[in-house]
């Protein structure tokens, strides 16, 4: 910003912005701190800010009770798996829409996005029954399929907006140079779209990781992801605030780190390139 402002103004704005930001961040910060407190300290009637008796026992207890690592593993498999599957289906489709558009391309894109608007509950019951009959209930691969389907429209949309920015000349040059479609996509399009594909991948891993409707309704013990893991703490049988915080922290930490690392691309990605 090239605007000239006096230092006091800047100080004022800085303080105001940080105050609001920390207010927004407070729940996460509080969880982080509580996770390292003892149970009695966590629910003491005069709360402490920093843990007085720093402890890791909450994490051990959580792993003991609900097997964090199994759920985390499931989360990774489902979110990464569904994203890769989505990219495999999405890249060719986005190529087609970006570089060989027809009059209907716009409508198809809109229709795809509208499938995202279809409420999950509208199809929950049949999917539940189909899954039951196909023995896909509570399986990681079943969940991966669903996750691919619900995120596919977003994947295609995002890829489409990134591909649109690639000059069609370059793909035509490849065609003139004798490249078949496969080579055109693998050697020219994909390498040029790496940043776009990467942010599509990241965003979808995050969305899939945090998806909490299908992961809760279609799994129970075996294929449960972290959303199911954490939901099991909603009725705290003998489980108190500190352990709950530890579990929460475990569930969100991986994606929070990933998100911080990639927030710039993500914001742009989520708007389908409509806001630059």
């Amino acid at each position: 910003m090239a605007r000239n402002v006096s230092t006091p103004t800047k100080v004022g704005f800085t303080i105001a912005a940080w105050a609001v930001a920390l207010l927004l961040f407070a729940p996460i910060l509080w969880t982080l701190l509580t996770a390292f407190k003892t149970e009695s300290e966590a629910i003491a009637s005069s709360p402490t800010f920093l843990p007085q008796n720093f402890t890791l026992e909450n994490f051990a207890a959580v792993q003991e009770r609900s097997d964090y690592f199994k759920h985390a593993f499931n989360s990774i498999v489902v979110s990464v798996g569904s994203t890769l599957l989505g990219l495999i289906i999405g890249v060719p489709a986005a190529w087609a829409m970006a570089f060989a558009p027809t009059k209907r391309t716009k409508d198809i894109l809109m229709w795809m996005l509208s499938t995202k608007m279809m409420p999950a509950v509208g199809v929950l019951i049949p999917i539940y029954l189909i899954f039951r009959d196909l023995r896909l209930l509570d399986t990681v691969h079943g969940l991966t399929i669903i996750m691919t389907l619900i995120n596919l429209p977003i994947i295609i949309w995002m890829l489409y907006t990134y591909f649109k920015e690639i000059p069609v000349d370059i793909l035509e040059a490849a065609r003139m140079d004798g490249a078949e479609l496969w080579n055109e996509i693998v050697h020219v399009l994909v390498p040029m779209a790496v940043p776009g594909i990467a942010s599509t991948l990241l965003l979808n891993v995050i969305l899939a990781w945090n998806e909490a409707f299908w992961t809760i309704t279609l799994t129970s013990g075996r294929a449960g992801t972290l959303t199911a893991f954490i939901s099991s703490f909603s009725s705290p049988q003998g489980l108190f605030l500190a352990k709950l915080s530890a579990a929460s922290l475990l569930a969100i930490a991986p994606i929070l780190l990933l998100g911080w690392f990639s927030q710039k691309q993500l914001v742009r990605g989520l708007t389908f390139g409509a806001v630059k």
Partner: peptide
Amino acid sequence: LRIVVISPFFVMPPVAALIWKNGF
């Protein structure tokens, strides 16, 4: 600031709910 502000967006819904329900 951007990183601090965006953070709640990355919190999965059940965790968000539990944090607010119990911690807040």
